[in-house]
Design a protein around this nucleic acid. Sequence first.
DNA 1: GTTAGGGACGCCGGT
DNA 2: CGTCCCTAAC
Length: 679
Amino acid sequence: MSRDYVLQPFRSPVQLQIDYAKELNPQQYAAVSSAPGPSLVIAGAGSGKTRTLTYRVAYLIEHGIPADQILLLTFTNKASKEMMRRVNDLLGADLRDLWGGTFHSIGARLLRAHAERIGFRKDFTILDREDSRDLVKACLGDPGIETTDRLFPKADALVDMLSLAVNKYASMAEAIAGDYPQFLPIGGRIEELARRYAARKRESNVMDFDDLQTQCLRLLNEHPDVLQRLQHKFQFILVDEYQDTNTIQGRLIDQLAAIHKNLMVVGDDSQSIYSWRGANFRNILEFPQRYPGAKVYKIETNYRSTPEILQLANAAIAPNKQQFAKELAAARKSGTKPGIVPCSDAGVQAAFVCQRILELHEEGVALSQIAVLYRSHFHVMEVQLEMTKRQIPFLVTSGMRFFEQAHIKDLTAFLKLTANRSDEIAFKRIALMFPGVGAKAAEKLWAAFQAQIRMQELEGAAAADARSRTLAACLQRAGKAAPKKAERAWAQFTTTISQIEPLVGKPGEMIQILIDAFYADYLKETFDNHRHRAEEVEQLGVFAHQFADLDTFLTQLSLLTTAETDDRNSNKGEEDRVRLSTIHQSKGLEYDVVFLIMLCDGLFPSGRSLDTSEGEEEERRLFYVGITRSRNELYLSYPLLRYAQGQGEMPQMQSRFLIDLPADLYEEWNLRQSEFGGY
DNA sequence: GTTAGGGACGCCGGT
DNA sequence: CGTCCCTAAC
């Protein structure tokens, strides 16, 4: 196969608008102006990693590389948006053509374009974690998978196992042998389950999050024409947070970069915190071997934090054995020493955090520049209560994702079914909303509905416009299988579907019709906090209006997180709120003041991680990530007593990570009972 | 045989 | 806060 291809000439430096050498430090400049070819940028926390990447993109574009031939991969939508914004600011040009996005969103985009090649339809829908679990549950009833013995894992655990298996690019059998040896005796049934789950996904024309990567890789491996086209298209590929890529992502990148080899990966081994979802450390460690001649750039000057915070960070990570040798050098002037704050219990800790925040706010620190970070979602309960009491505005950027809330999922189930009539999970979710319909009736309705669809197809679905009426008609006829109680609701439902079916180009209107037709009433009957939920549902409608295509809307929505939808609100002037977040979600962000709370042994490091030495080292890196979020002030606190499930008040040991810190690097705060008592 | 509602218990992390 | 299991009601 041959293909004409024109390489754009590099522009002479005279035409450049940006003075790269002046705006960057020498280390950053070296990376940004790197000649084409593979390069690895090791960039420590706060050293201007994002800056380097954004200037690199600008540099490429100013040198005549067309934006649509640059692929910029990140892990979170937030990071992606931030980079696109910064490149935009730099160049003052519209970069809609640039291929920037998360691994998952880019994967979804490529799969939409080529779904038929790998046995899916292009209108496939995406399963979130809960949907995956439901589908696994449905498979558990299948023949060949007897689950009567008590030791058979629950659906949740099975989803984790299936996911880890694909993300490590191992078969289920290998995953069981490697990571779950306790299940070897029932390995055969788990493998059968994995096969059934994959088959059910295909029948339903749905993909889970992992499929957005694995199916993409399969597409490239099995269809050389697609691979070659993309290999030629993407002249330059840039990857952020490379230390957290897994084997699948590593291979995807290697495949796409195989021809031009203009691949720049940026990362920091000290911030690798995702091995539990299959991140493969070796991608970054062995990059120089995989790409002989790769240039390696190190950026070690930290512009973010005070020397005091940096010293503490360096000391915190020091006990780890597996790391590239490096020491962050401070560029800033001296500030205050980090504080370690023992508290008598979690309530006192919350009171301390709140009082200190109010003081800082008085001193002029914006609330949005203060973050409370923690290991696990439930660690922040008391702080939330206390902030509510004291009327401190806060934004929780952790916990359940916007899309995963029941009311949002209810509504999108209708849209999903409209987009993809094979979506069994969406159908059953809708069916269960009708009075008198439970699991059994939902199953019957689904069977009846499928039978109707098949009949329609046999009768000659040739006429394209007749197709648009098929869904509503099939639903109506399938409704005969519904219990008496549900008849009226079902009739209304089919009418509504017939109204929204033609509106696939206007998802916002679809949602409004659904709300008006019956979802508003359903909310009132079903939930105590229906007012709040109704608002969010309306908000979903507003959000949907920006999309002119149902598939795109649904894809975007399922890849969104709480943080990003909340940011949407903050545009309305609500941004002055304290950030409450897990450390994982704070990655890549920075704040003037950081509180790291609940630093108890067993909570952080989490008890579960301590089985392996790798686990403890990863926790330590997470601790390091938390510390290095802070620019000016850092507080490390822990309760001496904690209310534990079923055990009442339990004495707590401070985290081993605190014990490891040299005493001259921090100040110990003693809370006086008179100020913090009474909780 | 099914569904709906109440009570007990358990929690790592994210696309 | 949400899931699972039990029991009452249909």
